[in-house]
Design a protein around this nucleic acid. Structure first.
Lengths: 132, 132
DNA sequence: GTTGACCCTTACGTAAAGGTCAACTAAAAA
DNA sequence: TTTTTAGTTGACCTTTACGTAAGGGTCAAC
């Protein structure tokens, strides 16, 4: 068995985030590590949540968004109406993310065509330069 | 020929953003519409910049990022060192966006598997419900 | 018996991206 | 001529996502 718990600074180091950030996420009810006295003890499932949080952030989710999605995971199997709401919330997010992918593709195209243009320009005007 | 200029409220309406936002972008040197007296007159190229800005925002660029990229477009064909810097900045952004696409794909998978799970759960527990 | 490594909380600070509100101007409509 | 209408600036307000002290606890090591 690999290690089952993590201290705050272990997670902080592993993911390159500050202690403050981890505590902040707890304040915002995104993670709820056990305590040993006052000290936070993170489980592997806390760590999994953290991975979700960080990926959520990278795709532009707000703290509130992330909390909502995490709660969905936990809340699954509730009342009918609640399920329905969750599903439609998911679908909304999915649509957003798909739009975002399109936006990214368009941006990528523009950026690489800009790079192309400039590379050609460089080759014409500063041919002597080493091309590393 | 289609219309060549736009008022602030035309653009505001077309893109669903507020006047404040358009003025803010000008304050932040992202757009620089001509003036007719005091009133802002946006050209088609201002509008094109705006489209870039809004898409940039959707992919998570900050105002500062967007300004940088817009300046790249304008600055192309400058001094050698400047070109080099621009190209490497572009490449950096490209890498980021590619990572972001991966993150989005992962998130999409998790979200749709969540939807699947819940849909099955619904079908099992509340089969009577109409499935619209 | 103090030093150092970690840990804690409380609380004010801050940058980004606008919102909101007041007071003003200029042109157009009534 | 008065009143809309569309636009302007400037000032302050707000939220988000943390940063940054300030002050203190614990426990092993020297």
């Amino acid at each position: 068995m690999t290690k089952r718990t993590y201290s705050i600074s272990e997670l902080s180091e592993e993911f390159g985030i500050t202690l403050r950030t981890l505590r902040y996420y707890e304040d915002e009810a995104l993670i709820a590590p056990k305590r040993e006295g006052q000290a936070r003890i993170y489980s592997t499932s806390d760590r999994a949540r953290l991975i979700w949080i960080l990926r959520g952030k990278r795709v532009g989710f707000s703290i509130t968004d992330i909390r909502e999605v995490l709660n969905m995971h936990y809340g699954k199997g509730g009342k009918e109406e609640q399920c329905r709401v969750t599903i439609s919330a998911c679908n909304k997010r999915i649509k957003n993310l798909e739009q975002q992918k399109k936006d990214i593709d368009e941006t990528l195209e523009e950026l690489s065509s800009l790079v192309d243009t400039m590379t050609i320009f460089m080759a014409e005007n500063y041919p002597a330069a080493n091309s590393i």
